[in-house]
Amino acid sequence: MSGRITRDEAAHVARLARLRFSDEELDELAAQLSAVLDHAADVEALDVTDIAPTSHPHPLVNVTRADEVRPSLDRDEVLAQAPSVDDGQFRVPPILGEAP
């Protein structure tokens, strides 16, 4: 166990990901992720500065569609799957912060 990730770092990342963990869970998580990152030290150590990144296995470009309207979904079918609905809309608890 290398301690590459601290409990605080794990907690920070958990906040970004909107997940909650107990302190014990955070410690375990930090240890497991440290082990994964230890294994990834081979990648981390590699000098690959001259190699371009590949985000995608196949080099496609300019895939687009025509600007033509297609049928939307039936609203009742959509809202039937929602946890809470009001007045044809998705209902959520009050939102405290602002959108970025």
């Binding site: 990901a17 994964v36 690959v48 190699i51």
Partner: peptide, 29 residues
């Protein structure tokens, strides 16, 4: 959850180049 945390960490500011960015270059290699 474990993978969400690992992935969030790998993409977050300060770690992107060391992990995610490098992994994409390994893919090229």
């Amino acid at each position: 959850k474990r993978r969400i945390i690992l992935g969030t960490y790998a993409l977050s500011a300060g770690y992107y180049d060391a992990f995610y960015g490098k992994a994409l270059r390994v893919r090229t290699l």
